[in-house]
Design a protein around this nucleic acid. Structure first.
Lengths: 239, 239
DNA sequence: CATAAAAGTTAGGATATACTAAACTAAGAG
DNA sequence: CTCTTAGTTTAGTATATCCTAACTTTTATG
């Protein structure tokens, strides 16, 4: 209800449609490391056809949010990156709020936040942040960008990067896919947990890790989605 | 992010798109009283062209949510009414939550709730309801339908219906248009306040009402959007 | 380095919504 | 009971997304 503006459900300053927002977040996450985000990779992450991505990238480019190199992929412009960081901030604050105030499990909150973030106003998000005391990490341990868009993306190692015998503290893990998160939780892997690599099969094989005294074999795909802070670990504050 | 289903951003059981949801709520509010909701009235309430409404009504009819009588308007089917009540429940619970838990003013919360309700899952809404102790009225005094869809739509009078000299207690007011709500608040008119009609100009002219000892002239349009419970008033519990 | 496989793009359609302009209906005024 | 007009609907478009099929470019292989 209430008079609506022309057509686009802009609602927020950025004036992007929900879908376009998802693209920005996806590109932000994939382009880490100089390389532009590949069309197919974006398509896979968002669950849409590569052809659709090509089209959207052109639109985003027209809006000055990404820079597209034909047949190579897209990278965010400064404006695009800043927009993406704002979206990530929204997402992580909403996740934090849902977990802290409404009893959501950290392994099921991503989906709900994904839908809410497209409708929530910046004002609401900031109220949530304030209610939580301006948290700096979300429930999965991922850093929350500040409202200025900065983010501490310290280069973390994943379990897959550790050598046999190394001990490390889990800092964060990929937040999507609650099934995966529950699987990790079942082994005691969560932000703050200490893990140790007991064995490693060669050729990209599974890694056997020790968590709270119990050994668990973990596939390389899963291991590389759990970020750790390699540290002698043994009782310590923050990293 | 996360694999998305085919095309429609269905998300909830009902599988309606956000816009369609707004139409249902609008129709629910307008058809009160046997008469179907008129195309132009819906168009005005939603701020879109009448022609667009015609198109949407056909789509809603195809979905079995409304029954359209050409050139006369639309009324909700049982399914449509039930869907509308669910949407109203969502809206009012979200409003209540925002006011109670995030410090929103009751005069500014409608817009935020309007956007949020399209993304919030039923689970989230019920969690909010539970966190608030399953409220039965929203911040504007409007009843919240139960999850079964029932709603206590006791026929309320508006200030415009009162006779000179009558005293009444404000029960609720139209929730959209925060400017209007602030205007009312400025006179001390809010749910629970007691008002008395001091004078009435003839021919749909303004009504002068007394609120907390002060007299205020109120246009008939505004007066008819403030619902009261005519009662001898003078210190009493609930209605 | 020629060519096949992989990755990416274009073309042509589909859906949901909205808009304007033109055509049509219903309802009140004489 | 006809005519004007307010209210509706239809027709033709536009935008944002998505899809499939067909074509193009890049990359990888022998």
């Amino acid at each position: 209800m209430k008079k609506k503006a022309p057509v686009a459900p802009a609602m927020r300053a950025g004036a992007l449609t929900g879908q376009a927002e998802d693209y920005l977040k996806a590109i932000y996450e994939m382009e880490q490391g100089g390389e532009p985000a590949a069309t197919t990779a974006i398509a896979e992450l968002l669950g849409i056809a590569p052809a659709s991505v090509s089209g959207m990238l052109q639109r985003l480019a027209r809006l000055g949010l990404v820079q597209v190199e034909r047949y190579r992929g897209a990278r965010l412009t400064h404006i695009g990156r800043s927009a993406a960081l704002q979206l990530i901030r929204r997402h992580r604050i909403i996740e934090s709020y849902l977990v802290t105030r409404l009893g959501y499990g950290w392994d099921e909150v991503d989906e709900e936040a994904e839908r809410l973030e497209h409708g929530a106003s910046t004002d609401l998000v900031e109220r949530m942040a304030a209610a939580l005391g301006h948290p700096t990490e979300d429930p999965h341990g991922a850093p929350i960008p500040t409202s200025e868009g900065l983010v501490d993306e310290r280069r973390l190692q994943s379990i897959a990067d550790l050598a046999v015998g190394q001990t490390a503290r889990v800092v964060r893990m990929s937040d999507r896919d609650s099934e995966f998160l529950r699987y990790l939780a079942g082994m005691g892997i969560r932000p703050g947990a200490t893990v140790k690599v007991a064995e490693r099969e060669p050729f990209e094989g599974p890694v056997t890790i020790t968590v709270r005294g119990k050994k668990h074999p973990v596939g390389i795909a899963a291991a590389s989605r759990v970020y750790v802070e390699s540290a002698p670990a043994r009782r310590r504050g923050r990293g």
